[in-house]
Design a protein around this nucleic acid. Structure first.
Lengths: 148, 148
DNA sequence: TTGGATGCAAAAGTTTTGCACGGTT
DNA sequence: AACCGTGCAAAACTTTTGCATCCAA
């Protein structure tokens, strides 16, 4: 994880002050292996002894997303937005529909397809979102998915 | 588009009554080439002379999603859910970040990748979501994307 | 006739905003 | 000191629900 000086540099470069909340939010997200809701970040802040309000967390997450330090993901059925530390890695997720765990995938199978599609459609393709869903070995062992 | 008798049959098979609203909503969605928000459906109903309320539209869309006659899509940055007629075709979208138009893609480049991933991870993969983003020829001609 | 469908209004849930105060540079 | 960041409360926005009424089967 980044040390305090590096973090301060990161923020300065983006024109953001180094506040207690802001650095704590980045630390929390950087430590996690999975995206978090604003609410989860809020609770983790409080657990770390930093009292705050949910609105501040939302506001801060917005700023960090705008500055490209955090990425907003929409993976889930739920209405809540998810946020994750921007590791600057193009990623996809494999989500278990049983236990909801998410495996992040670093390989991307779409380079060639994107090129082909650009030729077909004359779009300039700049990005894509891919997530895969299924059942992990543990959940399969529990007999999931149950037959409807 | 389906005729009234077919539509009535579809609904009967799913245990749903053929009401004015319900059939109208299905017709509206079936005619569209792009997913619609509940609000858009609501306005189209009113435009068609069928006065209703937004809550009824939401309730109805929910039912149709549960019965698998309609699919709920989350493509967008916006908070609103999108609904589309379930044509029983596995689809992906190419979304223009300029004018927001969506091209639906019937080919799917992921069969082989899914198989490979199943072998690697021992997940049983049941589904995936893939959407691509970029700029259509028209928006490119307008100079999009603008340099930030 | 009877259970499902509807309209209205109100509630619920997530996210945003206004404003006064506080902290960083 | 200046400006950005924060807390609180209230608003905004999307979606859901309760209940009385209505309609299709």
């Amino acid at each position: 994880m980044k040390n305090k000086t590096d973090r301060r540099e990161d923020l300065k470069r983006k024109g953001l002050k180094s506040t207690r909340h802001r650095t704590a939010i980045l630390e929390i997200l950087e430590k996690r292996t999975q995206p978090a809701t604003a609410e989860q970040v809020f609770f983790e802040l409080n657990r770390a002894g930093i009292s705050t309000s949910l609105s501040t967390v939302y506001r801060e997450l917005d700023r960090l997303v705008n500055k490209n330090l955090v990425v907003q993901v929409k993976l889930n059925e739920s209405k809540k937005a998810l946020y994750e530390y921007n590791r600057m890695i193009h990623k996809h997720y494999l989500v278990c529909l049983g236990c909801k765990k998410m495996i992040s995938l670093d390989t991307c199978p779409l380079k060639a397809y994107e090129k082909q599609l650009e030729e077909q459609t004359h779009f300039r393709i700049t990005d894509h979102k891919l997530n895969l869903y299924g059942y992990c070995p543990e959940c399969q062992a529990k007999g999931l998915p149950h037959k409807g």
